[in-house]
């Protein structure tokens, strides 16, 4: 029963001295970071003036040059193929890593720790660095890009797959365990069906991320449209560079729209 004589509770919780010290540290970090690295207004203004000058980058980009639309289209297709292949392989390998990384499904705490560490490593190292590593291993070209996307997606999807599996209702899994089902049986019959909507969403986001990422991988020689983009910039063909950027934009938007449509249909 409520007591009408009780005063209203305070609006905010007292954070105490450690809380204030923490806020001060965070504030000092933000201010010092801005002061050390952010561009000054003066510098920004000079740069923007140069950009729109008669010989500036923006001026030379227009109109975009679509004279090489044929070769560029083939390279775009290669970019999409790299993204699809890398993403597919990454998602396939992400699933076992994710299962081994979950509290409930991992066979041993040591296995879980190792699986989590591998996923964290794959996620933390940027895909451009993976691309450089795979160029050393398999040479220049799309194969290095596919492997870089694959490893990046194991890290990305592995984490989200594991989180989705951790968040599933444990009831059906307990029921199957009580029936005498094997660990694989529990995963196949209870965990995967429950996670299907989340897995689908993650997979489609992974594909979108792969398409965006695969364009950049060409900048270090790992195949795809990025190679042509880099060459266009290196040769000061800014109008052709803009054409490549616009075509890449169209591809990314098409993939995002397509995956969004699939998500709405499936989930």
């Amino acid at each position: 029963m409520s007591d009408a004589s009780l005063p209203a509770p305070p609006r905010f919780r007292q954070i105490g001295l450690p809380g204030y010290v923490g806020l001060l540290v965070v504030g000092a970090l933000v201010v010092s970071s801005l002061a050390a690295t952010a561009p000054t207004m003066d510098k920004l203004a000079r740069g923007l003036t140069r950009l729109f000058a008669p010989s500036g980058l923006f001026t030379q980009m227009f109109p975009p040059d679509f004279s090489r639309i044929g070769p560029i289209s083939w390279k775009l297709l290669e970019t999409l193929q790299m993204a699809v292949a890398g993403c597919f392989l990454g998602l396939i390998f992400a699933l076992p890593f994710a299962i081994l990384a979950t509290d409930r499904l991992s066979p041993h705490p040591l296995v879980r720790t190792v699986a989590r560490a591998v996923i964290a490593l794959f996620r933390t190292v940027p895909d451009l660095v993976w691309a450089i590593i795979f160029i050393i291993i398999v040479g220049l070209g799309p194969a290095a890009g596919v492997l870089a996307i694959m490893v990046d997606k194991i890290g990305f999807a592995g984490r989200f797959f594991a989180e989705a599996m951790e968040e599933t209702d444990p009831g059906p899994q307990d029921a199957l365990r009580a029936i005498g089902a094997s660990r694989l049986g529990i995963i196949g019959s209870a965990v995967l069906p429950a996670c299907l909507p989340s897995f689908t969403a993650t997979s489609l986001f992974a594909l979108e991320k792969s398409v965006r990422g695969s364009a950049a991988l060409g900048l270090v020689g790992a195949g795809g449209i990025g190679v042509d983009l880099k060459v266009a910039f290196d040769l000061f063909n800014y109008d052709e560079a803009l054409a490549i950027i616009l075509m890449l934009l169209a591809l990314v938007i098409a993939v995002e729209q397509g995956s969004g449509w699939i998500r709405r249909k499936l989930i």
Partner: peptide, 21 residues
């Protein structure tokens, strides 16, 4: 224990079925 559990049926308060199937 797995083989033994197969001989014991449990009916749960919350049914514990896999909802999407």
């Amino acid at each position: 224990l797995r083989r033994f559990r197969a001989r014991v049926g449990i009916v749960w308060q919350k049914h514990n079925l896999v909802p999407r199937l």
